[in-house]
């Protein structure tokens, strides 16, 4: 089932700047991300979505693995954990299961989540423990200087696919859906306002939410794949390369071919893991 994100009032509609400071750790900016890296745009969308939900910093735990995207927790004033490559989901599972009152957010990248962390990713989706997973998907390993990732399109150039990748990529959303995630969506850094609404819905959803977020790595992916600059890259990959669920529904299939669909792609109601465990405890202890 496909659902549109619910509309809400946001500060930028009041035409005044959003104040990110209550969510940021003071003195940690500028961040380490390169000029033009989309990760900062994604983070800002996330913080606006959190603000809209009214969550308290104390009640949020952000867990990450290794890579550029995994540096996100260092900048936010939550209960944060920067862990090991691919393992963020498993660490987050421990945090959430031990204290289900915490709102757990995992920030991860395409390599972190789908290569080295692939097993943890699918099992997190299967368990349906309440957490929101943000996959910052830029097709490349940025932290180690531009190796190809499992989401890299066929033919794309990286330091480990110099003559063009011969591997088919993963579709993060299809993978998450198949593995059992109960909320699956896609956004881009370019569509930052839409992303904020999508993240708002993802955070609000009870169960495992996966949001695949296309953002740009101009330093490596852009340079290797003949993109002139980050703006051109965002335009060709994120703006022109994608289409919203609503647009896609209106157009004939031949017009949407080759386009990546943005928006909420899958939603399902299923017993959340910690609730299921509580039921088990009630059963065992009342025997």
């Amino acid at each position: 089932m496909t659902t549109e994100a619910t509309a809400r009032t946001v500060p930028y509609k009041e035409k005044k700047p959003f104040d990110y400071d209550p969510y940021l750790r003071q003195g940690k900016l500028p961040h380490i991300w390169c000029a033009g890296c989309g990760h900062g745009i994604v983070l800002k969308s996330l913080l606006r979505a959190i603000d809209a939900l009214g969550w308290k910093n104390d009640d949020i735990s952000m867990v990450s693995g290794i890579g550029c995207s995994s540096r996100t927790p260092g900048y936010v004033d939550f209960n944060t954990m920067h862990t090991l490559h691919g393992r963020a989901f498993a660490f987050a599972t421990g945090v959430k299961f031990a204290n289900p009152k915490l709102n757990v957010i995992v920030t991860t990248g395409d390599g972190d989540a789908l290569a080295i962390g692939g097993n943890h990713f699918i099992h997190a989706a299967r368990r349906n423990m309440d957490m929101t997973i943000l996959v910052y998907n830029n097709y490349i390993y940025g932290m180690t200087s531009g190796q190809g990732s499992p989401t890299m399109p066929e033919g794309a150039v990286s330091t480990t696919s110099r003559f063009g990748s011969i591997e088919p990529p993963f579709d993060t959303c299809e993978l998450a859906k198949t593995a059992g995630a109960t909320f699956v969506a896609r956004g881009t850094a370019f569509h930052a306002q839409e992303l904020e609404k999508t993240l708002y819905e993802a955070l609000k959803h009870k169960g495992t939410s996966v949001v695949d977020i296309l953002d740009s790595c101009p330093t490596y992916y852009g340079r290797f794949n003949k993109h002139k600059n980050v703006s051109e890259m965002m335009k060709s990959i994120e703006k022109d390369g994608t289409i919203s669920v609503a647009q896609a529904a209106k157009l004939p299939p031949e017009k949407t071919e080759g386009k990546i669909v943005r928006g909420i792609l899958h939603r399902a109601e299923r017993l959340e893991y910690c609730d299921g465990y509580q039921n088990l405890l009630d059963r065992v202890q009342n025997k």
Binding site: K15, F18, Y20, P30, G38, G40, I41, K44, A192
Partner: peptide
């Protein structure tokens, strides 16, 4: 025109538009 799009797409928390 105060649309805030520069702020919203700034990855570096570097630009703000005030009325």
């Amino acid at each position: 025109i105060g649309c805030q799009l520069c702020d919203i797409r700034c990855p570096d928390f570097a630009i703000q538009v005030f009325p």
